[in-house]
């Protein structure tokens, strides 16, 4: 066992870990932050996406030890300070971009990373960026629409509402 320290959602966090402890395990088990989910074991589904030093990573494919000293942001850190939903979160609710909610944390974190890099993505760019985030409920329609809306697009003309 060894000690690891990092900043999670602006607060310092530390704990005892093994070499094999994944970042997602540290978040869920050491810190009790269960918003970050595990949906696969081959680094594909993206339910575990968090930001490490501002970059989207799969927390199931990174050791906690590798996040020593890093600045980590999870879904628990995405709301506004007053507790209201952040822009992307609110767009997901407004446009029904989630159903069972299991992939949602990863979707929101990926969407946030995309919009940080590219504040005005096209539909094609959004769909391409979500290659590593699998949703089984929504058929992606309302996820893509929500991200477009969060980016300020007029989504009223998108088919079906």
């Amino acid at each position: 066992m060894s000690q690891v320290s990092m900043t999670v959602n602006g607060k310092s966090a530390s704990g005892e870990i093994e070499g094999r402890t994944l970042l997602v395990e540290f978040l869920r088990e050491n810190l009790g932050m269960t918003g970050t989910h595990v949906g696969c074991d081959t680094s594909q589904c993206g339910a575990c996406v968090v930001h490490v030093d501002g970059k989207a990573v799969k927390a199931c494919t990174m050791f906690a030890a590798e996040a020593e000293g890093a600045n980590v942001t999870t879904i628990e850190g995405m709301a506004n300070e007053d507790g209201s939903l952040g822009t992307i979160q609110q767009a997901f609710q407004d446009h029904h971009g989630l159903q069972c909610g299991f992939c949602t944390p990863g979707m929101v974190m990926s969407a946030a990373a995309l919009l940080a890099d590219n504040p005005n993505p096209s539909e094609v760019e959004i769909r391409d960026y979500l290659e590593g985030n699998i949703c089984r409920c929504t058929g992606y329609h309302n996820i893509v629409k929500a991200i477009m809306a969060a980016a300020g697009h007029d989504v009223s003309k998108i088919a079906a509402e």
Partner: peptide, 9 residues
């Protein structure tokens, strides 16, 4: 290659 999160690692 892969997806954005994979490309970051």
């Amino acid at each position: 290659i892969g997806d954005p999160a994979v490309r970051n690692r």
